[in-house]
Nucleic acid binder design. Structure first.
Lengths: 361, 361
DNA sequence: TCTGCCTTTGCCAGCGCTTCCAGGTGCAGG
DNA sequence: CCTGCACCTGGAAGCGCTGGCAAAGGCAGA
């Protein structure tokens, strides 16, 4: 048996320079090349308006920086300047198309403002959200956005507040908590749907929802309240709670149809559950909307592409995102949230498609 | 007109302490409280195995740290230690359910390894990808993952490589480039679909795809190659290129059906386009699969929930993600990629559902 | 009792950047 | 010719952390 020969082609992985040992050029390097000091480099590159630099020096520094491909070390700069240009985003979900779209929108708009999104994915798990707050540390992100409600995330919320940080919540319902919040007007959205269905002659309604999360809870309460206002009888059997996903919607509708008193219309707490319910209805041989009407909430893109296309309520994602970022910028600037701004509500819009129709018979 | 009175309730926003001025406790603070030096605090909290700290000191430091709620400043630590525990992820898309699922999976697995994902959203725009590389700086992220192919992202790629960083690409097709890549075996996937359709008696096939991106390109080439191997005639009209989304799939199928020579089966380059195509077929009054078979690629969750459910090929997301992270960890550790590991391919699986059936007539 | 070693801890430098402060130059006015 | 004032620029400190080096203390062996 031959003793193992050390590899001979180039530096071995364990001995050679590590990939990550690579250091970019520093301000000192640029300074040396330009024949100035590091502080001058910093001033030139930051346009420090207070002090003027002579045009020639300015030019020389820029040339040197360009030649070396220099860009300031983001960590060092942040450590010094207290700004990271990063926004932490803790999202309840990311695979849900509604959230995906929201994240995408936020990301685009944030970039336009010179910020990046650091995505913390809570996976519908409050303990992970808490863990996230540790990572999306006050000192790592200039601000934090919370997207979607998490059950029992009180601890996470407290932790964030303890750090006295710029933080804003989205789509978590009008929580009584101390975090400024932006919501779709969930009650109004449900109202639009109920009016629509009532006008179509539906009197037996059911609601399927995905748990007791803040905004979902609001929709459920609004459903109950407005049904009763309209004189509709709603029994506990008419409300079904299941997982907040396609399978959950599917199961919930199957169960509803096994009950003795079948609804003529089913409202889902969100589009994803509605798509699951739609599939279930079709699998059961029901015609939609001839036999049963189905509605969603959110208006995800897929809602246009089912057969039949889904009647739903559109959440104003663009507007909410824009407002959230504008607001967060001000918090980051140091403005304290005024009382009046603790909660904002943006109106949704009814989108009528083919999954709703006149009540049968 | 009264002169405006300065607000009098509490410190005004512009004068008061800024929200972001808040400083957490530092190692010095802990040291002072525990009656030791800052370096001792550092050693205790980092379990620096080399030097032992007396149990009593250890205890005192931990108590002090707990009391102050101290955690080391991530930026300072990273600046010193050269590790940020952050992985940059530049994704071609985030709203596409396949990518959303992939991102979610990566995020979960990365967290288990002690890393966070910083999401850079390229929005199918190569110039944004380049911009991302600047943000997801070598010094900001320990490593970078590229998810999905971007047309003409050569500049971005070069920039990343110039920084000699740990970087890995996913789902971009077997590019000849110098970046290690992990791919689904797209050719094999297409082969499975074609065999399936051929067995069902289909002889007139069409392909709709969303552009000339790497992995999509591979699928298209495989479609062409295997069709010809099977003796099928494929004309340019049988291949339609449109946007890589639901609308694109819809339009592509409508156009296909306007052609004189209608296919009996349509293969889409991914599930999203397939869903659009499915909707179009149903809108045109076609029965699926009686009149036309439709297949996708990816196996997103929604594929199970259309009516009829979509026959497709499942990409092994879990496995690819796991392999990508394991590999990236080693790159971050400093191992240089070996020649053999420049490209890995993971086999996909055929998932037969209801959108495919025997060829008509 | 003294020497020497080992354990435990503190000091200090420095990661790369920004910014206050002070110093140096040039030019105009006295 | 000297003084003063702009205007530019360099020096140095320090953000919070880590790690090498060395010193202080304790104890055992001679």
């Amino acid at each position: 048996m031959h003793p193992e020969q050390p590899a001979d082609r180039g530096p071995s992985a364990s001995r050679g320079p590590r990939l990550t040992d690579h250091k970019g050029p520093t301000a000192r390097d640029v300074a040396r090349l330009a024949g100035v000091s590091a502080s001058t480099v910093s001033r030139v590159l930051n346009d420090s308006g207070t002090t003027l630099i002579s045009p020639s020096t300015c030019e020389r520094v820029r040339a040197a920086a360009a030649e070396l491909g220099y860009s300031p070390h983001p960590l060092a700069r942040a450590l010094r300047g207290k700004h990271t240009q990063l926004i932490g985003l803790i999202a309840r979900e990311i695979e849900d198309p509604f959230f995906a779209h929201f994240i995408s929108t936020l990301s685009t708009q944030a970039r336009a403002l010179g910020y990046q999104i650091v995505l913390g994915h809570a996976q519908s798990d409050p303990s992970q959200a808490l863990q996230m707050t540790a990572v999306l540390d006050a000192r790592h992100c200039d601000g934090v956005l919370l997207l979607g409600d998490l059950r029992d995330d009180g601890a996470a919320t407290e932790e964030i507040l303890r750090q006295r940080r710029a933080v804003l919540a989205l789509c978590r319902g009008q929580s009584p908590g101390p975090i400024p919040t932006i919501n779709t007007d969930n009650r109004h959205g449900m109202r639009l749907l109920l009016d629509h269905l009532y006008t179509l002659g539906h009197r037996r309604l059911a609601f399927i929802n995905g748990g007791w999360l803040g905004d979902i809870h609001e929709r459920r309460e609004a459903f109950l309240e407005y049904s009763q206002l309209s004189g509709l009888e709603v029994t506990p059997d008419d409300i079904r709670t299941d997982s907040n996903n396609l399978d959950g919607g599917y199961r919930a509708l199957v169960e509803l149809m096994q009950a003795p008193r079948r609804p003529t219309a089913v409202l889902a707490s969100d589009d994803v559950m509605a798509l699951g319910a739609l599939k279930a209805a079709l699998d059961l041989g029901l015609r939609v909307p001839a036999d049963i009407s189905i509605t969603g909430f959110d208006d995800i893109e897929m809602a246009r592409f089912t057969s039949p296309a889904l009647t739903t309520v559109r959440q104003p994602v663009e507007a909410m995102s824009r407002q959230a970022l504008a607001w967060l910028m001000r918090l980051i600037q140091g403005e304290l949230p005024s009382e009046a701004e603790q909660a904002a509500t943006v109106p949704p819009a009814l989108v009528i498609r083919q999954s709703t129709g006149p009540a049968p018979r």
